[in-house]
Design a protein around this nucleic acid. Sequence first.
DNA 1: CAAATAAAAGATATTAAGGTCTTCTATACT
DNA 2: AGTATAGAAGACCTTAATATCTTTTATTTG
Lengths: 154, 154
Amino acid sequence: MLTLQSESHMLSKSCQYALRAVVYIAEESSTTQLVGAQQMAESLQIPKHFLSKILQQLSRNKLISSTKGPNGGFYLSRENEQVTIDRIIEVIDGPGLFTACVLGLPSCSSAHPCPLHEQAVGYRDGLYHKLKNLTIRELTLVTRLEKKESSTPK
Amino acid sequence: MLTLQSESHMLSKSCQYALRAVVYIAEESSTTQLVGAQQMAESLQIPKHFLSKILQQLSRNKLISSTKGPNGGFYLSRENEQVTIDRIIEVIDGPGLFTACVLGLPSCSSAHPCPLHEQAVGYRDGLYHKLKNLTIRELTLVTRLEKKESSTPK
DNA sequence: CAAATAAAAGATATTAAGGTCTTCTATACT
DNA sequence: AGTATAGAAGACCTTAATATCTTTTATTTG
C-alpha cells in the first residue's frame, strides 16, 4: 500500500462538490435572495473557480438557475426543485457509474455477467432507484429532519 | 458534459485489473502449473508492467503467491483461496470506498449524517458484507456456474 | 556453475483530474 | 449612460493515476 493507491470514492470530487453545492443552494437561496459562487465557495470550503465551473455546467444543463450582475447568484426554480439527484451525477460524472461493469469489462451484461455482476448490480440498481426518485428539494427536507433528530437530547 | 467529466467507476482501474487477475489466476493456475505475468497480461489485455506492479502488491500483502525463475509465476495457496474480495479492494484502493462519505465530508457519520448518508450506507454495507464473505475460490465457482448457464441453449 | 527465465524494483513518461488565474459579458443600480 | 457586481468562458498550471521501460534479483535447469 505504498505507491499504488487510488482512494476510489465512487463519486468524483467534482460530483461531490456539485451535490454539496446544490444542497446548499436549496437551503440558503430563495427567489428573492440568491446565493453567490463566492459565498458558496467559502461556506463549503471548495475552490471558488473550480466550483464556478461545476455550477456553470449544472446551469447549462438546466439543473440549477442563475442570474448575473449585482445581487446575482444561483437559485432553484420550481422545475429545478424537482430535478433528481441521479441527474446531477449523470451530468457531472457521466452515466457510467450506474451502467458500467464493476470490473470495467465492456462485454459484461446480465446475459454475459462478470464474476461480480450479480453482487454489484443489486447494490447499484437499488441506490440508483432511490436517487432517481429523490429530488433536490426532498434531499434538503431529509437533511433538516436529520439535523432536528440529532439535536434532540438523548 | 463537454470538458468536465470523470467517468467515475466505483473501483479504480488498478483495482479492476487486480480483481480480473485474481480470478484468472484462480482459474488457470494450479500448484503444479503457475501462470506468468506475461501470459496473464496478454489474455486479460492489461499492460504487462502495470499488471506486474499490481500483482507484486497483492503478493506482498499475501493475497496471492509467486515464485521466481523458470516456470515461475503466480498461484493461489490454500490460504490465498480463502482470501475475500474486500481485502483485494482494500489493498489496492484503500478502505475509503466502504467507509468514506459519498459526498466526501469528513464529518459525516451516522451521528451526523450527510443528506445522502442513509441512502448510500444501506446499499454500501450490503455490498461490503457480501464481498467480505466472498472468497476468491467462491468467486470462480460463481463464474463457472454462470458460464454453464449462459451456454445452456434456450 | 552457467544460462535462461521470470518476478521484483525503480525510474521515467503520459494522460486525466483537479485546481488557479485572467478576461469577457450580462445585469442592476445610481 | 456609467460603474460596479457577479457569473461565463477559456487559458493555464499542478498533481495523481495510469502506463512504459530498464535494471536487478532470485530461482530453476542443464
